[in-house]
Design a protein around this nucleic acid. Sequence first.
RNA 1: GACUCAUUAGCUCAGUCGGCAGAGCACCUGACUUUUAAUCAGGGUGUCCGGAGUUCGAAUCUCCGAUGGGUCACCA
Length: 492
Amino acid sequence: MENNEQNLSEILQIRRDKLAELQQMNKNPFDITKYEQTHSSKQILDGFDDLEGKRVSVAGRLMSKRGMGKVGFCDMQDNEGKIQLFVKKDLLGDDEYALFKKYDIGDIVGAEGVVFRTQTGQVSVKVDKITMLSKSLLPLPEKFHGMTDTDLRYRQRYIDLIMNADVKDTFVKRSQIISAIRAYLNGLGFLEVETPMLVSNAGGAAARPFETHFNALDENFKLRISLELYLKRLIVGGMDRVYEIGRVFRNEGLDTRHNPEFTLMELYQAYTDYHGMMELTENLYRHLAQTVLGTTKIVYNGIEMDLGKPFERITMVEAVKKYSGVDFNGIHTLDEARKAADEHKVEYEERHKKGDILNLFFEKYVEEHLIQPTFVMDHPVEISPLTKKKPDNPEYVERFEFFMNGWEMANAYSELNDPIDQRERFKAQEEQLAQGDEEANTTDEDFMRALEIGMPPTGGIGFGIDRMCMLLTDSPAIRDVLLFPTMKPLDK
RNA sequence: GACUCAUUAGCUCAGUCGGCAGAGCACCUGACUUUUAAUCAGGGUGUCCGGAGUUCGAAUCUCCGAUGGGUCACCA
């Protein structure tokens, strides 16, 4: 609040006056440094049979007050949930009870008393000592409707978390999902590593980077758009199983499924290929759903997806044939591809080659149909600059994208380890860049040196962690799984 | 970036045809010793998102701007 004291509206001034009153009585809540909690709300509710009649101390935020005669009830919310406090004048004494009556919803309190059940059956704490531990100067949203304005919820997430238990639950689940991924991969002998976010060449994905400046070196840097090129350097260095879970940044649009900074998990495993990555993906997803949700059948927006069954596998060419009727096995030249695109209203640009057009067909006709877990395999080489070609057909590569709910959930390949081929692929990317593809990669010379030292055959995969959390928590927007999503600043 | 809808009290929302700014919750005063969105009596606490215009008069109509939601475009 920027308002000075004189400008505060009455509703705000009253709370400040109450605080001043406490301070004058030498009961400044902000002087208190700690409070001992013997039990959480949940422990008392779950363990009532053992705790009935026993003395406990609890602490949390006052969420509601009722029945203010010589006896009062309040709901106190702590980290685990809510517990009702029963506060009686006889037990507290006249002076303390008078102070308690001035407590506001939102204040943080500590209470001591005996666990019991009220006449209506509600497990409660019969309070004989209550202390204000922090005064709330701003009123919370109304108790019944809570806070629903999405703008306010995202900007003031602290209020959202107080008012909406399901929001807190979503973020608890997100934390559990990431913990479960770490535990699973660590159990397979993977090593978690951290690689630079500030880079001079942002490669490994097709995206426009954010740019910044490092004063000490007077150099322009970019924020990373993927983790790939550094993790592969580690494979070269003999770290055979590595992964990183970290933030990447892409200077692109923002909608219900995209935030400019998001969490990517990339993993590289030496001596395996994309088939190994498919097996790992299938096992990992199944494990996560079972661990976090307790079932392999997840429901997103009313649609059930079964992670328990073997995931479907289809090549990109087969998928395009299935959903658009166009068979790229019979298309051999760019002219033929363009003709097919024209006939099927697929828009393409001058720089697009045959493989790009196949991908455009895929995006237009196939993606939305891939609801159940599906591996789409064998992409065209033109859109896969870091991937090994298929031994029997150099127009395609050993790559798959994992789809669920029509969304791309993961992207994996048999990593290209032939440095001569890799240099040609970078060169082709630079030609695309020259022709106006702002998302094309450029040659990373240090990465090239690493490949020339020699990288074992390797399988690699990247997962979008935020989308994974959306699916597993049935969240409609990516902003619902980000504690503080990117928002346009209000202050100028 | 385009289109579209929204913005009124701390929160959730009404506000008719352009004519004194409204309700519920919260809050204040009082009553009430087992309440559950407690109840009863009284009290409205406001930059109607910001600016300009039309008008005797604008929360309401017009234009410009801000922020957000949705859809599309780009992407994961």
